[in-house]
Simulated assay, not measured.
Amino acid sequence: MAFARALALTFLPLALGLAACGPVPVEQAERSCLRDAELAQRPRGEVAIGVGSGPGGTRTAGRVTLEVGSDYLAGRDPAKVFDRCVLNRSGQPPARGLYEQPGWRG
């Protein structure tokens, strides 16, 4: 009996956490799925270079960040990636297609 109660108390937070991952409203899913569609269209990245001087002399620093989505590597259509993402997150198809979304930079 004590084991069953301990087991239930262990898995209760996990079950509650998974319940919080349920479907979201379509509008919210559309906003968050724009990023997936952008990564399916092209890689994203940045290059930063800095030069400064101080008591120790001149300093240089650099950073390169590159993010490539698996949908881009597979050659998937960004509009289809968007549709699938919205459906997965909300349980419903998008109200507006990718190319009608505010903020889409096609």
Rank of each mutant, 00 (worst) to 15 (best):
Asp83Gly: 03
Ala8Gln: 11
Ala95Ser: 13
Ala6Asp: 12
Arg89Asp: 08
Ala48Asn: 13
Leu12Asn: 07
Gln92Thr: 00
Arg44Ile: 01
Gly62Tyr: 07
Leu73Phe: 04
Leu12Ile: 02
Ala2Trp: 07
Gly54Lys: 04
Ala4Trp: 09
Ala37Gly: 06
Phe11Val: 14
Ala6Met: 12
Cys33Asp: 03
Leu34Pro: 05
Gly17Ile: 01
Leu16Met: 13
Val24Gln: 10
Glu30Thr: 09
Val51His: 00
Arg44Ser: 14
Arg96Ile: 05
Glu27His: 12
Ala20Met: 07
Phe82Tyr: 14
Glu38Val: 07
Ala29Tyr: 08
Val47Asn: 08
Leu98Gln: 02
Glu30Phe: 08
Gly75Thr: 04
Tyr99Trp: 07
Val24His: 03
Gly54Met: 05
Gly17Tyr: 04
Phe11Cys: 07
Val47Gln: 11
Val81Phe: 06
Asp36Glu: 15
Pro102Met: 01
Arg76Asn: 05
Thr10Ser: 14
Gln41Ala: 15
Gly45Ser: 10
Val24Arg: 08
Val24Asp: 00
Arg105Val: 07
Met1Asp: 12
Gly52Glu: 12
Gly57Asp: 04
Phe82Cys: 03
Val47Trp: 13
Ala20Pro: 02
Leu18Tyr: 04
Thr60His: 10
Arg5Thr: 13
Leu16Glu: 08
Pro43Met: 14
Arg35Ala: 15
Val64Ala: 13
Leu39Lys: 10
Glu67Gly: 02
Gly56Thr: 15
Trp104Cys: 02
Phe82Lys: 02
Phe11Pro: 02
Leu98Asn: 05
Ser53Asn: 09
Val81Thr: 06
Tyr72Ala: 10
Ala61Met: 06
Pro13Asp: 03
Asp83Gln: 12
Ala6Thr: 11
Val81Gly: 08
Met1Tyr: 11
Ala6Lys: 13
Asp36Asn: 13
Arg44Tyr: 09
Glu67Leu: 11
Asp83Phe: 03
Ala6Asn: 12
Leu12Asp: 11
Arg5Leu: 15
Cys85Ser: 03
Tyr72Glu: 04
Pro78Gly: 01
Arg84Leu: 05
Gly50Arg: 12
Ala15Met: 10
Cys21His: 05
Gly57Gln: 06
Leu66Ile: 03
Leu34Arg: 08
Val64His: 05
Val68His: 05
Gly17Met: 06
Arg63Met: 08
Thr10Arg: 14
Val86Tyr: 07
Lys80Pro: 00
Arg76Cys: 02
Ser32Gln: 15
Lys80Phe: 00
Pro43Lys: 12
Ser53Cys: 01
Glu46Tyr: 09
Gln101Met: 15
Thr65His: 08
Gly52Lys: 09
Ala48Trp: 05
Leu18Glu: 12
Pro102Asp: 12
Gly50Asn: 11
Arg96Trp: 01
Gly56Glu: 15
Val26Arg: 09
Pro78Asn: 01
Gln92Val: 00
Trp104Ile: 00
Gly91Phe: 05
Leu87Glu: 13
Leu34Gln: 11
Val81Ala: 07
Glu100Gln: 15
Lys80Arg: 14
Arg96Ala: 13
Arg59Tyr: 01
Arg42Met: 11
Met1Trp: 09
Gly57Val: 03
Ala74Pro: 00
Glu38Gly: 13
Arg76Glu: 12
Val86His: 07
Asp71Arg: 04
Glu46Ala: 15
Glu67Asp: 10
Ala20Gly: 12
Glu27Trp: 07
Ala74Cys: 00
Asp71Ile: 00
Cys21Gly: 06
Met1Ser: 14
Met1Cys: 10
Pro93Lys: 04
Gly50His: 07
Leu9Asp: 09
